[in-house]
Design a protein around this nucleic acid. Structure first.
Length: 469
RNA sequence: GGCCCCGUCGUCUAGCGGUUAGGAUCCAUGGUUUUCAUCCAUGUUACAGGAGUUCAAUUCUCCUCGGGGUCACCA
């Protein structure tokens, strides 16, 4: 069974890059009928917060990503780590190092001065004399000093490291007894049965150290997939400064979970030429072997397009539901269908839908100057007036088609083009030159409101003398 | 600096020795529409550079250049 995991450290909101690796891990587990474990790496007490954990869970919930089993917290697993530290000590695979921080610093400075790479010199590796006074030791693992370590990576291929280039006896437990990252990750992954690790490729160079731990403990080494980073426009690692890296920001900006997931799954992964993936399709088709090797640049143009696509293809009931989050209540509005049908084709985000809806439902209080200039030429006011009268006498005006007939009538009677009535009427109803079809607007707001808006516009424009003759 | 990874249109990507180098997005143009948007059609734009290997390289090898990541008693 495939068991994957997402293992964030709760130091802030859920990052867009983190979400992508989470999604990949989730999909791969689901595709194989396996398990997706959520593990909170909260060993750094100074930087962690409960809020951050909540934020991650909130984002998961919004996007519909579900982890399997209980959430694992590293902070609760201290005893387990201690047990393995002692085991390694007993087996002589790890040892206590009494080098003071000052001495370590000194060592590094000397190495740097000699243009050597900085590494621990193994001073206490085979030490069995009386330890120096007043120093709490750290625990170091005996890492191989020579030889090759190969990371078999499903994305990058076999990546080979030379022990002498990168390894030294690294610390697995600090002076206060707390275990370090590379040690606990290996233990947790092994104990939780994680056999496919999908994570950012910034961890690739950590992997040999973790392999050292796996081997010392006799654990099976999982399959690794190191997925390339997401870069900002400058080609650097995406950071908070780049803006919009908090997953939940996308909710407030009016993106749908579907669109965001679809956007993310295609960043660094592809399945032929397919662009649109439902969550179910992702679960069926995702395979880490199709993950790209190179980093991608974060650019939301395609997200906008996907979001527009999903809005267009979402049933109105669902849209009404989503709009509730934006304080738009259409769920039991009698014109719900006609409103949503009218605007879903022209909005890129839910937020845009909100302003489109308000634009229709609210009586305009001002008129766009350019639009007025363009629309109100010649006898526009007269035409508009005549149209108003037509609406007033209309006995059966409910549907857009009813109003459309009215417009056709006036075009015929006055022998004018559609624009002659369309333009001034549009300004009167919406206050500007663009927007939803006029017959639709009138059907939505009804006969009385239509007449009111026409009257308002005429009054306003005549009194302010904004007409152009 | 050492080590490691990467390099196809502006962007996301397909390609897995022989293709007019494909799709998507963006942009532009045209059509549809009373307007805007949608939709449809058309178009511009890419194999970082140089050596090999081969009958043939975007594809394989090496070098150069460029970009990124990582080198802790952080995770």
């Amino acid at each position: 069974m495939v068991v994957t995991r997402f293992a964030p450290s709760p130091t802030g909101y859920l990052h867009i890059g983190g979400l992508r690796t989470a999604l990949f891990s989730y999909l791969w587990a689901k595709k194989n009928g396996g398990k997706f474990v959520l593990r909170i790496e909260d060993t750094d007490k100074a930087r962690n917060s409960d809020e951050a954990t909540k934020a991650i869970l909130e984002a998961f919930k919004w996007l519909g990503l579900e982890h399997d089993g209980e959430i694992q917290y590293q902070s609760k697993r201290g005893e387990i780590y201690a047990k393995y530290i002692n085991q390694l000590l007993d087996e002589g695979k790890a040892y206590k190092c009494y080098m003071s921080k000052e001495e370590l610093t000194q060592l590094r400075e000397t190495q740097m001065a000699n243009k050597q790479r900085t590494k621990y010199d193994g001073k206490y590796r085979d030490f069995n004399a009386t330890p120096p006074e007043g120093i709490e030791p750290v625990i170091r693992i005996k890492a191989p000093l020579t030889g090759e370590i190969i990371v078999k990576d499903g994305v990058k291929g076999d990546v080979s490291f030379q022990a002498e280039d990168i390894l030294d006896d690294f610390v697995i437990a600090r002076a206060d007894g707390s275990p370090t990252y590379n040690f606990v990750v290996a233990i947790d992954d092994a104990l939780m049965g994680i056999n496919e690790v999908i994570r950012g490729d910034d961890h690739l160079s950590n992997t040999p150290k973790q392999i050292v731990v796996y081997e010392a403990l006799g654990f099976d080494i999982p399959k690794f997939y190191h997925v390339p980073m997401i870069h900002n426009q400058q080609g650097k690692k995406l950071s908070k400064r780049d803006g919009a890296t908090d997953v939940m920001e996308y909710k407030t900006m009016g993106y749908t979970p579907q669109a965001l997931l679809n956007f993310l799954v295609r960043l660094g992964w592809s399945h032929g030429d397919q662009e649109i993936f439902s969550l179910q399709e992702m679960k069926n088709l995702f395979d880490p072997k199709d993950i790209n090797k190179s980093a991608s640049i974060y650019n939301t143009e395609k997200l906008d397009w996907l979001n527009a696509h999903y809005i267009k293809n979402t049933p109105n009931d669902e849209l009404a539901q989503l709009l509730l989050e934006f304080d738009i209540v259409l769920t039991s509005h009698d014109k719900k269908e006609i409103i949503l049908d009218a605007i879903k084709e022209r909005a890129k985000t839910l937020k845009e839908m909100v302003s489109l809806i308000k634009e229709i439902l609210q009586t305009p209080t001002s008129y766009d100057e350019k639009a007025v200039k363009k629309a109100f030429k010649g006898d526009a006011i007269e035409i508009l007036n005549a149209f108003g009268a037509k609406v007033a006498t209309c006995k059966n005006c409910h549907l857009p088609s009813d109003y459309h007939i009215l417009m056709e009538d006036i075009v015929k009677e006055k022998e004018i083009g559609f624009g002659k009535i369309g333009q001034p009427l549009r300004v009167a109803l919406l206050g500007k030159m663009s927007g939803v079809g006029l017959d639709t607007v009138m059907a939505i707001i009804g006969k009385d409101e239509t007449m009111l808006r026409i009257a308002n516009a005429i009054t306003a424009l005549v009194s302010s003398d904004k007409t152009v003759s």
